[in-house]
Design a protein around this nucleic acid. Structure first.
Lengths: 150, 150
DNA sequence: GTTGACAGTCAATGATCGTGACTAAATTGC
DNA sequence: GCAATTTAGTCACGATCATTGACTGTCAAC
């Protein structure tokens, strides 16, 4: 078969990573988190983050983040605390369970990356990840760069 | 912000590539093809391919491929011809319009990759893509490799 | 205190994916 | 030939995910 293009590769890779992450997470006591939850949980910290920040960081619409947070609250992963600095806003704070999930998810991802490091050599993998980061940044900049030409 | 993990990067990259590809495609006369159509169109050839083959190659379930083909037929991108070798099967053959779409999509992707080549240097980009291919293959092999450990 | 901007929510729709059951044709074995 | 099994494709259903527009309450600037 012809070598797949970068888009197909990125899609297949993401899908395969998701499969391993959420299946392993389920085995480790978090069977009810789904991929979309991860896009929000990944950006939490102990101090609390505003929902709008989460939307901006994850690149999702704030409506989606809202429903994701509803589910996470229901599942006991986060709570919504009032923001003392702004009565409109609410701070999203992870619970014990949420903190556990975040830690486990990071550990699983780290283990996956370690596996690829072993397969490729630490140096090659580090170089790969750096370029992946850069290509992603460049590609995401496309819209700002040349999209006005419509 | 912390360096994103490989999963977040893969997802962001895929999404950004998709945005550019389908927006450009829309400008070039194909406003009604959506990402899921691409996963099937990418695997067509002039001689005709059976739907089951498309499902296997694209990694999608045959039911999904079926509905995608329904849409593509309706949009005038492919036709279903009877397979002379097997009366159960139907060969999916691209129309003129389908061939045009495939060519344009490949050209757009090639242009994107060329842009990244220019940014990174041809050699680094080639190395990157090769490793991306390998990592994707390894990651997709995870299920077969160690999934029985449940 | 009125105006405009922002945080978050409600509501509705469309797009996408996954599973099980089904029909028809090919293949195998007798 | 003819029954049993496999394979190609479809039908039907439900779950998940993303996009859009409108709305309430609060902040900030004047």
């Amino acid at each position: 078969m012809r070598v797949p293009d970068i888009g197909v590769l990125a899609g297949q890779l993401m899908r395969a990573l998701q499969d391993e992450l959420f299946e392993t997470l389920a085995e480790q006591g978090h069977p009810d988190v789904r991929p979309r939850h991860g896009t929000v949980l990944a950006f939490l910290d102990g101090k609390g983050v505003r929902a709008t920040d989460l939307a901006a960081r994850s690149g999702q619409h704030k409506q989606i983040v809202g429903t994701i947070l509803d589910e996470l609250v229901k599942l006991g992963y986060v709570t919504r605390e009032p923001d003392p600095a702004d009565r409109r806003a609410k701070l999203v704070v992870p619970t014990e369970r949420g903190i556990d999930e975040i830690a486990k998810a990071r550990a699983i991802l780290a283990a996956i990356e370690e596996r690829h490091e072993r397969n490729l050599g630490a140096e090659r993998y580090a170089g790969f990840k750096e370029i992946l980061h850069q290509v992603t940044r460049d590609q995401r900049a496309w819209r700002q760069a040349g999209a006005g030409t419509d």
